[in-house]
Design a protein around this nucleic acid. Sequence first.
DNA 1: CAGAATTATTTTATTCTGTGAAATATACTT
DNA 2: AAGTATATTTCACAGAATAAAATAATTCTG
Lengths: 407, 407
Amino acid sequence: MARIDRASTATDQRESGRQKVISTIRKSGQIARIDIAQKTGVSPATVTSITSELLKAGLIEEIAPDSKPDSRRGRPRVALKIRGDAHIVAGLKVANRNVMVALIDFEGNTVSEYTAALPASKLSPDDMAGFIETSVRAAAQEADMDVSQISGLGIGVAGIIDAPRGFVYWSPSMTERNVGLRDLVEARLPLPVFIDNDANLVAMAEQLFGMGKTVSDFIVVTIEHGVGMGIVIDNALYRGTRGCGAEFGHTKVHLDGALCRCGQRGCLEAYVADYALLREASITGSLSGQDPENATLDMLFRKAKSGDTTAQSIFHRAGRMFAMGLANIVNIFDPELIILSGERMQFDYLYADEVLEAMKAAVIQVDAPLPEVRIHKWGDLMWAKGAAAFAMDGVTDLAIRKITDAA
Amino acid sequence: MARIDRASTATDQRESGRQKVISTIRKSGQIARIDIAQKTGVSPATVTSITSELLKAGLIEEIAPDSKPDSRRGRPRVALKIRGDAHIVAGLKVANRNVMVALIDFEGNTVSEYTAALPASKLSPDDMAGFIETSVRAAAQEADMDVSQISGLGIGVAGIIDAPRGFVYWSPSMTERNVGLRDLVEARLPLPVFIDNDANLVAMAEQLFGMGKTVSDFIVVTIEHGVGMGIVIDNALYRGTRGCGAEFGHTKVHLDGALCRCGQRGCLEAYVADYALLREASITGSLSGQDPENATLDMLFRKAKSGDTTAQSIFHRAGRMFAMGLANIVNIFDPELIILSGERMQFDYLYADEVLEAMKAAVIQVDAPLPEVRIHKWGDLMWAKGAAAFAMDGVTDLAIRKITDAA
DNA sequence: CAGAATTATTTTATTCTGTGAAATATACTT
DNA sequence: AAGTATATTTCACAGAATAAAATAATTCTG
């Protein structure tokens, strides 16, 4: 039952006043009541009543006057901020070879991080749930906490996920299809659990803590082994109807083009992902002398930097294909902002000015300025923090619901 | 001021109860109160109170019991429907060489249609507004009506439009950029005027009268001289932030590909629009003997049908490119439904089963069924009716606002 | 054919959310 | 200190939506 409630909340588009207020505070970092009223269009009276509820519930707090002379007449405004201690949430990312857990407080500060190697690259549903449980417990212990002090767990998995139902249609990390992973984990941990596809999680992280804070419509593109995309429209994550939209990496950029690991041809991923570049390198012998198993993008990148024209051309084409894919996104969505978000973005071939120029040249020209493209380099924790952001969203919802029900 | 109101309404995402109810009735054709309550999640009590307002305002009407034995026990449900006589709205489409006007009633029935040739392919803003005025007056006269009996006018123009502001950044039909066309027309006609890009208008028509009635997320693709797209997400038209999203036709499908009339290379349009096909035909000499100025797709199509392999290959490639573009849409949006909407769809090369098969093969495979692709063949009035749909939406808003203010 | 049962709609009293207007709080200016 | 400016709170009230009860209009059952 709690499940259905949570799912329906996610669907519920209209933000109640309380949600509007708390998300405004979160986006602004710190903000006075009058400004909340102005930003949200809600009346000052209502802001007062809502914030006093939130204060009582401990979700936000007032900031001490700061002795900062406002140099303004009149009663000084008192700023509000999210109270970091209000909740601790956990985010967990299931990656290829390991599981990463981040504990963050309600302000988004990282409290602790934890990594554990996966026993195998594919686990059975039960083993996966068990491993998740163990990892979360270990992460809590490392932070000197009990799991009961954690208010929610967000899990990011690659694959096709039905987030509202907490259901995994398919994931490369699991031996079975169609797994109700949320239920399995909730049976093992006394926490509300939220699951989503990893690209969506990063979009959520950008929205809550990152560059998407100030923007209502933006797109996040992630490049690692594959190419992912998260879409935020009107402040809400957009997921397709079947939960498999935003497959930017499998967007086709060439008719009958290069073979992709998905089995189809011409996918963007087949031109820009690391395996695609290494494939080209191995064909041209650019990395000859290297054990192909261990050949890394690093080597190829160094070669290009040191003048190897073949290596350069490999990166060059990848960059141009990427530019074309990005331009298509702009032509279709016309977003305010595109965030290129990455964990290890040491290779700038995809983010070079040259690439962005090529993108601009392939975008419909209007008088209005082009959407901004920003590059966001995260630490190792990007994915886990994204998962935590998702949990935080859910936990905030639950907290607000609790207030509402009490009232 | 009315202007600002209307604009803000368009932005206002949350449908008020009244809007929810009336749009449910419109989508359903006819529906009993209890079913409205069930569909919208609003309580029966509220439905009663809202519908009684709408009845009093004359926007809807009850359907006579129909003597149809429900074969059900209990008090029989009485169905409601939109009252066609409630309002007449006009839709006007500015095409290449002419202007088409459709008058439709509140149920979407066509009351009258009217066409007038444009004096030139590009007009000054004033001349355009004047020609629009004349055409609407003529259309009204032809239907034995006075313009004062028309409740609103929707205008569809190709180009980049800021619909909420009624502002035309650029249009191929006008000699100037940055024209506040709505104001110009409203100064000449005693009607609320609504302007939008044509692809959006067709999407609106599909949503109100067409195949999108039952679906909350869908995409409309139109193919005429160019390729257009309209996006409906969560029952609302999605326009990019700069008003130039959904440029499906200028999505790039080939790096450094064929030259498009927009000046860029590799646009989808440059492979599937009629001018692109004719260009290929003229190169290969497939239509030799024809005056190139008058060579038509018809001839090329007949050639292909009668076995000319060159002509066939031209269509074949166009179809495959189109399939690739469609697949990208599915990969990105994962919509419930894709509507291929056309005015004169006598050429099936883009809608052949073969093309749809190619699309399916290029879409990410999930267990869930693929989005449905439906082909909607409209009459000549497609665009004008779309413009009328947009007007109807606006007029409905105004009518509801009137009720709200009265209450 | 007269209840009984069933389903749809309406009425009524109430709740919840949000608001404007007035009151209050806390500064700066002169 | 009085006056003015600005932020916040209080308070009485309006509007939307609801649950529960009442009413309406049927079919079914004995």
